[in-house]
Nucleic acid binder design. Sequence first.
DNA 1: CAGAAGATCTGC
DNA 2: CAGATCTTCTGC
Length: 199
Amino acid sequence: MKRLTRSFYARDALSVARDLIGCVLVHHADAVTSVRLVETEAYRGVLDPGSHGYRGVTPRTEVMYGPPGHLYVYFTYGMHWCSNVVCATEGVCEAALLRAGEPLEGIDVMRQRRGAIPDKMLAAGPARLAQAMGFDKTQNGVALVGNKASVYLYEDAQTASYRSKEIAQTVRIGLSPGKGDDLPWRFVVKGSPHASRRY
DNA sequence: CAGAAGATCTGC
DNA sequence: CAGATCTTCTGC
């Protein structure tokens, strides 16, 4: 297994989102939980009406405008947390939304967090994934790189096999008309039972 | 300072 | 298919 380093994140969000497919996301908390990503989306700051960073730096978006290789966690709809990895370089807002994954380690812990539901439902959606992984505002801004990181990503032998599966590139989910809903910046492993919706 | 929308999910 | 539920930002 090989940890993703700063140079992986220091690219445009579209490239990062695509290459995150098949990578493993890990959270070392009281217990260890991990998922293999099967669905991501790119959000591209000032280029992208769908991005929280479209209108520049605010208290909420400052993490995305910061250095790459950090986690951006936001709260929405009055009850959900969603997580992204920050891309590009400091001062440039780009991020990849972590939309769905296949549970690997800590499945029992994920069930404690999410309820007694099937594996394929534990992380099938950005808010479900964040809940299964135990992410909330505590993790907003944490570094994904460096030896002390408790949240990080890695690639392994299976990563290549996931990347060589058929990856669908589609429009993003949940955006209002005119807010970048026509941009094909979503990546999903075709036919994956762990995706937020079948494709 | 008020109002509206929101990168969603669950249960009816 | 509607309700939950509250943060964040915009406009006045």
